[in-house]
Amino acid sequence: MRLHLESRRVPAALVLMAACGAVFQGVLRWPGSHGSLQIPLIIEAAAAAIVAVTTHSPFGESERATGRWLPYLRGGAAAGLTTASFAALLAGAVGANLLGGTEALLRDVAGMAGVGLLSAAALGGWLSWIGPMAYLALAEEALSSGWHTPWTWPARPPGDLGGALCAALVFFAGLAVVAIRGARAIGRE
């Protein structure tokens, strides 16, 4: 597990997530962001992008031609990092006014991490950040325009079941695809 996590640059990802937590704390305490859902969402999308980029495998085909452990390692790493990103942002929100509360934070982070994992399966690990960033743009538009679809879950109220279900569906779909197939290999190694 240690070698797998190291090869995916997970230690660096954890440092970046801690930095996201610190920035989150600063943003939530900044008077200009009071009452804003948009600005914290940017940090949440950044944390999701970090989760997605760690799916990149430096080993290519020689790793894909190995035994049964790889799907568990890939899935475990993605699930663990999503949990770590949620924990980092939750720690960053301590003592600050987190609109929507813990429930909405979990929903948004997990859902956007799922978008990132699906993006890794489609675009490859290095480009997977595009997914959460594109979803961020969509979610920001949904927030400012008042869309009601549950697929733009950050625009839904914290207790909204539809939004939570959509976010969970996207997260578990991304987790399954990345665990079973891995991030897409771009070009031939």
């Binding site: 495998s57 430096p58 290519g60 085909e61 020689s62 031609a65 035994g67 031939r188 190694e189």
Partner: peptide, 18 residues
């Protein structure tokens, strides 16, 4: 099969920190 297989691809990918 994969447990019993050894494969060296044309271009070997590696993590430089290993």
């Amino acid at each position: 099969i994969r447990r019993r297989l050894g494969y060296l691809p044309q271009n070997l990918g590696y993590y430089p920190g290993f």
